[in-house]
Amino acid sequence: SLQTAVPRVFGSILGRAPVALGQSVLSSSSSSFKSQGFNGTLQSIDEHVYAQAFSTSSSAQDEKQISSNAAAGIKLPGMAGSMLLGKARTGLRSASMIPFAAQQTMNMSTAPQVQSGATVNSLLIGIYRFWRSQAPMEKPHAPVDDRMLPAIIDASDKRAAIGTWASALFCTILASNLLGLVPTNEAPTSGLGFATGLGVSVWATATALGLYKLGFSFPGHFIPGGTPWPMAFIFVPLETISYSFRAVSLGVRLWVNMLAGHTLLHILTGMALALPFSLSFFAMVPATFAVACLLSALVGLEYLVAVLQSGVFSILSTVYVGEFNSVKLAGPLAKVVKKL
């Protein structure tokens, strides 16, 4: 138990949390572990948990039980039985005496450490939650308890990750749009292929989701509710056209907005340059002042457009993809109802 005590002591000295996964459990309730036959080494935590779960006695039997369970596909809940945390660290734990510094090094994360509450993180959390809020889950009719929980998880599994997609689109397009306002740069979204490529991709994503969800009844999506069936022969082609045009309009809206503003700036800047080029200084100042005011205002407008169009694109993406995102919640098929 010296092996486990040393990191704990040093951890408390350094003001850091204990290192390994199982150790927090160990430090909080080591006495109970001891009384339950825990032999004090880190490597036996998993086996101990297995032993608790399957209530076998000797360690040899434990090993057999574990291997047979693994073969049968039975896993511990959560990450405790996962390949990442269970298997990858077993080698480290089973090494009996490696230096403490090496242990610490091995236990250090290679992921960059972040400051909690950093501006970027707060901003991204807000952005992600906003786009996720555009496609909220429906409230189930039954109360959400542990009986309902699998159905909730199942429903969220069946939903498209609209929040993630819209956040990614928003950040990408916003960064691309704002690049057009950085000196010596132009916006990638003012290119036809980039902008319309994004638009077509979103439309194709929505369509693929719709085809996956609805299958051969996909055209039924184009019939408004309560329409008599003969009208479908008129509705479906028309709705198909308007639906397909979204592939064009979504990207072209972005492209044209980013292109037209910059083109206008080009033209007006050229006209503004004609004054100081050809007039004398004192005649030029008031006229150029007015034109420079106009140009500055237009660049400010471009800032607004850059933010607005990335938002509009992502909003419409949530709308288009969200059309096929409704999930029938698999509620309990049988229930015990108490009668008063």
Binding site: T269, G270, M271, A272, L273, A274, P276, F277, S278, L279, V285, T288, F289, A292, C293, L295, S296
Partner: peptide, 27 residues
């Protein structure tokens, strides 16, 4: 606005004798 004006004037004056690519309105 002064930044824009000074910048525009500098860009024109630094390499002055040039045939402008922008349309001069007959001036």
């Amino acid at each position: 606005v002064a930044f824009v004006m000074v910048g525009v004037n500098l860009l024109i004056d630094v390499n002055f004798p040039f045939n402008p690519p922008f349309p001069t309105i007959g001036m």
